[in-house]
Structures are given as structure tokens and as C-alpha cells.
């Protein structure tokens, strides 16, 4: 199994976020799950990668050439795919993965998570989408998504596309849960 993890590249965040990234990395490595991520060397991305490698796991970075040239990439990864741009980065991350996990992050993480939800809504990505809500970081986003449903911009069934967990250990359990099949989401996509 290959799991894509979206996460922040910020190092200035509360240490609990870093600990969550490290815990997730160790759990994925110990479960023999191949990790795909954005290839960053710092922040939660860096902590995730360091932890996967420290625990004997495999992790592939997918990073645009300009970021690599800026020196933002992690240097010890199992493999690195160099993409021409941000769009190709996401495309490759999705294509390689059976599931998506979002740790806390900024706009880049939000955008990746939003694309994952969009793709799954259209049955273009199949697989669990798990949001790790460390320190209640995603509470306001979840509220916003609820409001989309309340205002009929989203069907209530669509709330089944993603799953919110409070800790990395729960994310591992969620990965193994049954997922609604491919065709069904698209059938209800036209609301």
C-alpha cells in the first residue's frame, strides 16, 4: 500500500504538530506502507520523512524542479520524482497513492486536500482521505464543510468522502476501513 501524506513545511509551529508528523511516520514505516509526500526537508514534511526513514520505511518525494533547485528538498529520501511544476507534482502524488492523509498545513496542504476531495467526489481518485485534526487544527475547516452541506453546496452523503481523526494511530485504523466504491460518488456528484 502507498499512502500520500500532505503536510506543512513550516518549522515554526507548535511542537505537538511535529510530534504528530513523527508519530505518523513511524506508524506508516512499521506497517510497511510506502509513503509519498511533497519531498520537503523541513517542517512537518521533514519530520515525517526523517521518522519514516529512521524506522526503516520507504518514502518517495515528489517535488517540482524549482523547489529542488532552491534546496527545499529532503536529502535522504528513498526516491525523488522531479516534476516540471506544481500541477504535475499533485498529479504524480495522486497517481502513486491508494490513500491520502492530511496533517496540519497551510495553503499548499489545504489545496492538496481540497483537490483530493474533489477528485474523489468525481470518482477520479478512489481511496480513503483522512484528516488528522491535531490540536483541533481543522475544526474550522470541518465547520466550513458542514456549512457547505447546510447551504446545499454539497450533499450530506459527500461528508463520507473524508474522515477526520484526532491522532495518527486512528489514521492507521481508518486506512483499513472499507471505502465507498468508485461509481457511487460520481452518481451523486451532480447536486
Amino acid at each position: 500500500m502507498t499512502v500520500c501524506v500532505f503536510a506543512s513545511s513550516s518549522s515554526r509551529v507548535n511542537s505537538e504538530f511535529g510530534e504528530a508528523a513523527e508519530e505518523l511516520g513511524s506508524l506508516l514505516a512499521k506497517s510497511g506502507i510506502h509513503v509519498v509526500f511533497g519531498g520537503g526537508g523541513i517542517g512537518l514534511m521533514g519530520k515525517l520523512a526523517d521518522s519514516v526513514l529512521r524506522h526503516g520505511g520507504k518514502i518517495t518525494g515528489v517535488i517540482p524542479a524549482f523547489m529542488k533547485e532552491e534546496g527545499w528538498g529532503h536529502h535522504g529520501l528513498t526516491k525523488v520524482i522531479i516534476t516540471p511544476d506544481m500541477g504535475e507534482r499533485k498529479k504524480n502524488m495522486f497517481r502513486l497513492s491508494n490513500a491520502v492523509i492530511a496533517l496540519p498545513g497551510g495553503i499548499g496542504t489545504l489545496e492538496e486536500l481540497a483537490e483530493a476531495i474533489t477528485l474523489k467526489q468525481l470518482s477520479l481518485f478512489i481511496g480513503p482521505i483522512i484528516i488528522i485534526n491535531t490540536r483541533g487544527f481543522y475544526d474550522s475547516l470541518i465547520k466550513f464543510l458542514d456549512n457547505m452541506v447546510a447551504e446545499s453546496f454539497l450533499r450530506s452523503e459527500h461528508k463520507g468522502i473524508w474522515e477526520v481523526v484526532s491522532a495518527p494511530s486512528e489514521a492507521l485504523n481508518a486506512l483499513n476501513r472499507k471505502d465507498m466504491g468508485n461509481e457511487e460518488w460520481r452518481k451523486i456528484a451532480r447536486i
Binding site: 526516491k79 520524482i81 522531479i82 516534476t83 516540471p84 504535475e88 498529479k91 504524480n92 497517481r95 502513486l96
Partner: peptide
């Protein structure tokens, strides 16, 4: 290259 590498195909 590798089979699973999109940019490699480019």
C-alpha cells in the same frame, strides 16, 4: 527512469 515516474514519460 521508472515505470511509476510521470515526468520520466515526458
Amino acid at each position: 527512469w521508472a515505470e511509476w515516474c510521470g515526468p520520466c514519460r515526458m
